[in-house]
Design a binder for these strands. Sequence first.
DNA 1: CACCCCTAAGTTGTCTGACAACATTCGAAT
DNA 2: ATTCGAATGTTGTCAGACAACTTAGGGGTG
Lengths: 273, 273
Amino acid sequence: MGAVKGSERGPRLSVVVAGQLEAWISEQGLKAGAQLPTEKVLCERFGVSRAVIREAISRLKADGCVMTRQGSGAYVAARPGQVTFRLVRGAANGEGTEDSAISDREISDIFELRYLVEAGAAELAALRRSPQELERMRAALERMAVALQTGTDAHTDDDAFHVAVAAATHNPQIERFQAFMGQQFSDSRAPTWNEAGHRSGHARDSQAEHVRIFEAIAAGDAAAARAAATAHLAGAVRRLGLDERRWGALDAMKREHAPDARNEVLHGVEEGR
Amino acid sequence: MGAVKGSERGPRLSVVVAGQLEAWISEQGLKAGAQLPTEKVLCERFGVSRAVIREAISRLKADGCVMTRQGSGAYVAARPGQVTFRLVRGAANGEGTEDSAISDREISDIFELRYLVEAGAAELAALRRSPQELERMRAALERMAVALQTGTDAHTDDDAFHVAVAAATHNPQIERFQAFMGQQFSDSRAPTWNEAGHRSGHARDSQAEHVRIFEAIAAGDAAAARAAATAHLAGAVRRLGLDERRWGALDAMKREHAPDARNEVLHGVEEGR
DNA sequence: CACCCCTAAGTTGTCTGACAACATTCGAAT
DNA sequence: ATTCGAATGTTGTCAGACAACTTAGGGGTG
């Protein structure tokens, strides 16, 4: 492993060194707790200054695979693997890769992961929801209903509804994951709630699906809740014009459980307050 | 906002500054794309050197809420929220918090999240698996079968099997999430594959559940695959002695689909090569 | 007046050197 | 043999400087 220069033309010397250092660690087969070379040694080995080495190590620390103790040294963290999960591997790698357009395929993949979690979350929510949590969902639904009539944006309330469903599972991990997913691409909810979305009826359709999810959860019908959540995700994919082919099979699955268990727990939500 | 000294006696000045800076950003209500003060200004404001400021900003960059452009400045990232998802909020916060024992409740919660993803992944895998991916699962199964006879550890192959299932969804996001979850707590698989696990039959039971998952996926029976995956997770919870109460309802659900669609695609896996 | 190039100032990225805080080690005194 | 302490090495922090880059503004040209 010689100098870095030349091989990588990329900017941000520190991230290059961080990558090479991480590769070197796994390549050397260093186990948890193993001590890394000192900063001075690394400086010589990579041919960069200590500032760069420190910044690279700082990156690895933030990534969780390295830990440092002042006066002692740097060590491989106990959990050497990835401690964090990020969507869309392509982006968020270097620095500000805002312009890296996410492909439709990637969005479709993420929606599918959403499907897995949200369908299951709706299922569990139907089994465990408390009155307070139902009220929280209803409040979000109501805000969306108002926005539907006034033609305003309500993607925040959309997100809040889904988080409320996840919260009703009484599982903080699921709730946090849902919040994470929602925050990640609130952009994908924009086409539903902007002017075009209101005009084309996307907002109305989405809201109807939300109501169906809520009703199933309120009724305690886990299968119907799963089906309604699946239908909602499939509808979102359709509205975004993504690849529908992959979702055909899931549509078929959800149709096993007809959503006839709808009851009248909530009234006045559809027409907004 | 005055100097930092005194208020926080804690070590790692940079992480303190990082926290204060992050708090300052949200407190100022800076929106995505807003420019942060220059490093020189921040040095004066926090009363620290530029190295500390740079390390603090580096942390925020790694966290994803800040982005820098050389020659221009530092900006609030487009997605101000969390870009990464980490399990177990308590740990992995500061440095080496190895000793923070994870509660049974947290493990149970994480298993439930695993259930959501793995059950859905098995479902999708049954619909999309290719011969190559089936072979990959079979190879992992075979390695586990060998380990079952020799009484050796195979938790790595256990993980590999589940990742292979996730890979069969043809969805890299799901695969990466499964790999993430598996890596996170490979510890939880140890009680299945250590000596005690072999003696108590836990390894055998787990392997039988794996085979059932594989057979359902090989047969292309999505419902059976979901049921088998659910049964596997429920079995794992039982073996770990976690709270079984929460899993009763899920067990009931899986029983809707009797796993009678088992066929004989694979032979010789149960008895190990 | 509109447009383009080019200079200048400002900002982040990197380098260098030094000192402080802390950990480890090894020798000396008890 | 045990304990204490100094020496040494490592990371954390500080200070100053230059390089690479971006941006804004001025001057020239059409």
